Simulated scan of single mutants.
Amino acid sequence: MKDLQEILKITREVGWGAAKLLRFYYQGTAPDPYLNVQYKQNEPVTVADVALSQYILSKLQEAFGNEEFGYISEETYKTQHRKNSADLVWIIDPLDGTRDFIDKTGEYAIHIALVQDTRPILAVVAIPEAEKLYYATKGGGTFVETVNGSLPLKVTADKSMEDLTVVVSPSHRNERLEYLLQNLPCQKQKAIGSVGCKVTAIVEQQADIYISLSGKSAPKDWDIAAPELILTEAGGKFTYFDGKPLEYNTDDINQWGGLLASSSQEHETLCQKAKQILVEFEAK
């Protein structure tokens, strides 16, 4: 494998190029109308989703080839149960937050993660409208890059549980999640669109907790892999409610169950409380 820092340098360049292209679509200056919306499994897919997927895949494959590296992208992954056999696998979400992109909230992101043995070792999350690119490598810390250069990021974990802010989605809400949120000891909430924007808000200390509950559907590998490493390398945690680590490029691309991301020293306690609250909900 090439040196991880060399891979990161190229991936950051790809991330910035993708962010620039995506802003063209967002601002309506790209040649194709991004609002040519189709629906896949009840989720919107735009021309921009497909164009960005092609752009990122072509740039990564040009740089790294197909022998040592595998590729999983939201827009090209056709089956729900297929593990890529390569040792190193790129997991890509070219447009995380398509609804926010369509609704012009600005809260959309680009996720690029490199996974080895089911765990991320490199991640880039670009937030085009903020003109920021977050990056991390396993054991190397988390950084945010702007036109002015890069700065290291580290979360703080000294708030009391009651003072923690939960970042929530403006959509994708259901009765189980509402019950859980209403019964947690932390009642402050901040609504943000894409997962990438939610997790980077935690890293930037604008929020403290993100919770995902699967229902009829679940987050996919490409929703979580890059944001997870960005958070954990900044000192946060991202686990299932039972404390188990997330795994990627397994036989199922869905991340079923309860997931909790936080910057809090109370992470394990929050996970236990979330499990207890859901047991109460099921017993109602």
Rank of each mutant, 00 (worst) to 15 (best):
I91Y: 00
N66H: 05
D103H: 13
I91V: 15
I56R: 01
V89C: 14
G106L: 09
L57H: 01
V45T: 10
T98M: 08
N66D: 04
A51T: 07
A48L: 15
I91E: 01
E107V: 01
L52A: 11
R99S: 12
L95N: 06
F64H: 02
F101Q: 00
S85G: 10
E43P: 02
Q80Y: 06
V45C: 08
I112Y: 02
T98P: 13
N42Q: 14
Y77L: 08
K59I: 01
H111L: 07
I72G: 07
N84K: 08
L52R: 03
A86V: 06
E74C: 11
A51W: 02
E68V: 14
G106S: 13
Y77S: 09
A63H: 01
G70D: 09
Q80W: 04
L60D: 05
E62Y: 05
T46W: 12
I56S: 03
S58N: 14
E67P: 08
R82Y: 09
D103A: 14
G97N: 11
I72L: 14
T76R: 11
L52M: 15
G65L: 06
S85R: 12
E62T: 07
H81G: 13
Q61I: 05
F64K: 00
Y108F: 15
A63I: 01
Y71C: 06
Y108P: 02
Y71N: 07
Q80I: 09
L95S: 06
P44V: 11
D87S: 15
L88H: 12
E67M: 08
L95V: 05
Q61A: 08
G65H: 05
G70V: 05
G65Y: 02
A63D: 01
D87L: 12
I112A: 06
L88C: 06
Q54H: 12
Q80A: 12
H111C: 08
N42L: 12
L88M: 11
E43C: 04
A51K: 10
D93L: 00
I112K: 02
N66G: 02
E74Y: 09
S58Y: 03
D93I: 00
S58C: 09
K83E: 10
I102T: 03
P44Y: 09
Y108D: 04
V50A: 06
Y108C: 06
G65I: 03
D49N: 13
E43T: 07
Q61V: 04
L95W: 02
L88W: 10
T76C: 10
Y71D: 05
A48P: 15
E67T: 13
K78C: 13
I56F: 03
L52W: 05
I56H: 01
D100H: 01
L60I: 04
D93A: 01
Y55R: 07
E43S: 10
F101K: 00
H111Q: 09
L88T: 04
S58T: 14
P94Q: 08
